[in-house]
């Protein structure tokens, strides 16, 4: 569908340009952009690259707030470029910069490798004694809706790095894992199918771990998916304290729910239609 112009309005877009191989320091470059109804920041960047400067570099993939690739600093606030409409954030001037607290690869592309290294360090996966069942499942691990609620919102994290960019502790202490990895440490520790808390608490409770969080809450404020990492960190603190005081309830990881082998279809229930693909 063709874009409909709002009012033939143009805005100034300031993009922070930086090529570490050539530039001594980042600089701002101004572009003029005609804003159309529904135009997202990502659309605007594509328009600038197609019509004004093909050398502007930015990262994107899904264009629908699922992959988290296009997170950047939009008018000084971490957000997804694909999920932010220009009309909502700028009337005359739009500034775009790479996420802070990361090195810059080029222009608007931050180096997210430290984020993923820290994420990997908290062992963000289900750990169980019966890993054979995980690798070659014979059934499903039973989990009640109540157990699911304990971690569900933290599972919506798309690892875009917005929370890491908004974290004041991470800005001061590069050793601090940051909100995303620590929230994921809690997400898996709270999962009733998991028994890996004892491994994760070493990382989460380290000298640069979860206790360095000042509870500024900016991570939750900027999350484009509505996740509340600050809450996860406080819950992780509680788990660590209860574990230290030996008050943390030990639980066996969820058992396997096997499919009944002798089940017969109720004759009153019609059979499903045949597969079409």
């Amino acid at each position: 569908m063709p874009e409909t112009s709002l009012s033939n309005r143009t805005i100034d877009v300031y993009i922070r340009r930086y090529n570490p191989e050539r530039d001594a320091r980042p600089r701002w470059q101004r572009f003029t952009l005609a804003v159309a109804r529904g135009m997202t920041v990502l659309d605007g960047l594509h328009r600038i690259r197609e019509e004004q400067d093909p050398t502007v570099v930015f990262r994107y993939s899904c264009r629908m707030s699922v992959c988290g690739s296009c997170a950047m600093l939009i008018n000084g606030r971490p957000a997804l470029a694909c999920n932010t409409q220009i009309a909502d954030v700028a009337s005359e001037r739009l500034t775009l910069a790479p996420l802070p607290n990361f090195d810059i690869i080029k222009d608007l592309v931050p180096d997210l490798a430290p984020l993923f290294q820290k994420h990997r360090a908290v062992q963000p996966y289900i750990q169980r004694a019966d890993m054979e069942e995980v690798e070659k499942p014979t059934g499903e691990f039973y989990q009640s809706p109540k157990e699911l609620e304990r971690y569900l919102q933290f599972a919506y994290c798309i690892k875009c790095g917005s929370c890491m960019a908004g974290c004041p502790t991470l800005a001061a202490d590069p050793e601090y894992p940051g909100p995303m990895p620590l929230a994921q440490a809690y997400r898996y520790s709270a999962d009733s199918r998991d028994s890996g808390f004892d491994e994760r608490k070493v990382q989460a409770g380290a000298s640069h771990g979860v206790f360095r969080c000042h509870y500024a809450g900016e991570c939750s404020n900027v999350c484009p998916k509505g996740v509340d990492p600050a809450r996860a960190l406080q819950l992780m603190k509680r788990e660590l304290v209860l574990d230290y005081l030996r008050l943390r309830r030990k639980r066996c990881p969820a058992s396997v729910l096997r499919v009944p082998g002798e089940a017969r279809r109720n004759p009153d229930v019609p059979a499903p239609p045949p597969y079409t693909v």
Binding site: G205, F211, L240
Partner: peptide
């Protein structure tokens, strides 16, 4: 665990 102990105190 030391950090947890320090934080509790």
């Amino acid at each position: 665990m030391r950090e947890t102990k320090y934080w509790i105190w």
